[in-house]
Design a binder for these strands. Structure first.
Lengths: 156, 156
DNA sequence: GTCATTGCAAAGCATTTGCAAGTCG
DNA sequence: CGACTTGCAAATGCTTTGCAATGAC
């Protein structure tokens, strides 16, 4: 399912090269971060991490590289007008996510019955369904425990 | 399922009054528009329509009223960081939507198998699922025909 | 008469863009 | 070397906020 990050990195580099893009150290670092991150980071989270190695790296450079990958269909953008957008560079095809409303953690949620939902919706609505976005919001186990510890009367 | 708009409007007015809010002509018009709209309008689309009757109405007033309804859980906000947010004042509980990527039309898409998806995802991931967001993107029948007419070689 | 609401303008925030300086190939 | 990239700063677009004037109850 997931490609090995190192192999995926090579593929992305080759793909960008084939499109006439130059592989700068900054870009390589961004790609590396994206293919390794399971946490669906925001552009700013990526930027903060990248500053360690590239103290002058601009947030604009992160956005520009993400734009490149979006055009190539190699990164999945999860738009949130309140949390800011989050990015999945490991699995660029649409898949369900679960988002913790307390800590912002995002994990994949593969439900077999959701897989052919797009097909059914197409039949029901007459639309040509090209892509989808399936998000579930709630409390992750860690945050639920934290809440229970802080306020035992509200525990499940 | 859907309440009759007139009845729903009365409920909303009563609810806001009970919360100490005043029912100004502007607010009433915004509520009326929301409970009647099936098109999931944006704040700006609402504002444009409201300007006919209230030439001085400010966009901020639209947003402030929407905020009020969000706090009361009486409007469903569909966030799109690119299209701008869209609002459903008829059915404030989460439900699947289909969005036309060409014209921006949004329609409801009730799939019976999607209904208990939240429950299954909760079991699979260990999260407490509180709400969800299920969006399908594609071409509505009208836009598909338009496209086919413009470029017959690409027709389905 | 009080206190919430309006409407304007200004502020916020995430993201995008313009451009001169720098650098990959 | 030349074209692409970088990084800064300014611009953008949607939404929110501050505040004096207005108006609901």
């Amino acid at each position: 399912m997931d490609a090995v990050p190192a192999a995926r990195l090579d593929n992305l580099v080759a793909l960008l090269r084939s499109r006439g893009c130059r592989i700068t150290p900054q870009r390589l670092a961004i790609l590396r971060l994206l293919v390794h991150s399971r946490s669906h980071p925001s552009a700013e989270q990526m930027h903060v991490r990248l500053l360690r190695r590239f103290p002058t790296m601009s947030l604009a450079t992160v956005y520009k590289t993400i734009t490149l990958l979006k055009q190539a269909g190699e990164v999945l953008e999860l738009q949130f007008s309140d949390l800011g957008n989050r990015y999945d560079g490991r699995r660029p095809t649409p898949h369900p996510h679960v988002i913790c409303t307390a800590c912002g953690a995002i994990v994949d949620a593969d439900d077999p019955l959701l897989c052919d939902a797009a097909e059914r919706v197409a039949r029901e609505t007459g639309y040509d369904i090209l892509t989808h976005r399936l998000d579930f919001f709630g409390l992750c186990p860690a945050c639920r425990e934290k809440r229970a510890a802080a306020d035992p009367t509200q525990a499940a």
